Simulated scan of single mutants.
Amino acid sequence: MKAFDLQRMAFDKVPLEFLGEVALRSLYTFVLVFLFLKITGRRGVRQMSLFEVLIILTLGSAAGDVAFYDDVPMIPVFVVFVTLALLYRLVMWLMSKSEKLEDLFEGKPVIIVEDGQLAWEKVQRANMTEFEFFMELRLNSVEQLGQLRLAIMETNGQVSLYYYEDEDVKPGLCILPDKCIERFTTVPEANQYACVRCSHVVDMQAGDHQLCPRCAHPEWSKVSWAKRIT
């Protein structure tokens, strides 16, 4: 076999005429996926649950195979799409009848901020990290956690936010990127400090250095009193 053989890399043993068939197969799978999404009433990927994403990935695998493999017949792939559409409808109906089954397939919303602090124990139980949440919060113009009464990670990946009124905003952890905030292991002055990992707020005196009583992290930052900009 010759290395860097452009003919082999581009076509291998496929005749040039097969490209027309690939185009037709691609159009066929595009139409099938489009019809599936229209029939099931799906929205954007951002709004899909875990079960729905699994269905789409399975469809994508079938669509990819039939699009450019000449030995994959088109009718069996159509049967795959019909089967998945019926399965989807069946599972949706069963979930409407069973809350336990809905939790199994869809998952449960996770509280990530409660009363101005990261719901650390709940986030840990869900095997999640705080970094992705902080990014989502910044995209919603949240500067510090004390602005939030409640933040919930929904089953489709979106975050629902419930804010304090300006007069009720609490001191909280600033969630701006690291270069925008100072971190301390030994605090320079008496103030309230927030653990940079779990957001637990503690009154500390100048020279204090301690582990967070909530998550045992050693780094702190001064709390922020910033109000939400609307």
Results as ranks from 00 to 15, higher is better:
K2D: 01
D5H: 00
D5G: 00
D5C: 02
D5P: 01
Q7P: 00
R8T: 00
M9Y: 12
M9I: 14
L24N: 03
L27F: 09
Y28G: 07
L32V: 06
F34L: 13
L35I: 08
F36R: 02
L37N: 09
V45H: 06
Q47T: 10
Q47R: 11
M48E: 08
S49Y: 03
L50M: 11
E52F: 09
E52R: 04
L54K: 01
L54F: 15
L54G: 11
L54T: 15
I55R: 10
I55K: 06
I56C: 04
L57H: 09
T58L: 12
L59Y: 04
G60V: 07
A62C: 12
A62F: 02
D70N: 10
I75C: 04
V77H: 08
F78I: 08
V79W: 10
A85E: 02
A85Q: 01
R89E: 12
L90A: 13
V91W: 03
W93R: 14
W93V: 04
W93A: 09
M95R: 15
M95L: 02
M95D: 01
E99Q: 07
D103W: 05
E106Q: 08
V113L: 10
V113Q: 07
D115V: 00
R125D: 03
M128V: 03
M128D: 05
F131Q: 01
F131L: 11
E132H: 09
E132A: 11
R138Y: 02
L148I: 14
R149G: 08
A151I: 05
I152Q: 15
T155V: 14
S160H: 07
Y162P: 01
Y163V: 03
E165R: 12
P171C: 03
G172L: 14
L173A: 09
L173C: 12
C174E: 15
K179Y: 09
C180R: 15
I181F: 09
I181P: 01
R183C: 05
T185P: 01
N191C: 14
Y193L: 10
Y193S: 06
A194S: 15
C195H: 05
V201K: 10
V201I: 15
V202C: 13
D203R: 03
G207V: 07
C212E: 12
P213D: 04
P213Q: 07
A216G: 03
P218E: 13
V223K: 13
S224Q: 12
W225L: 14
W225S: 13
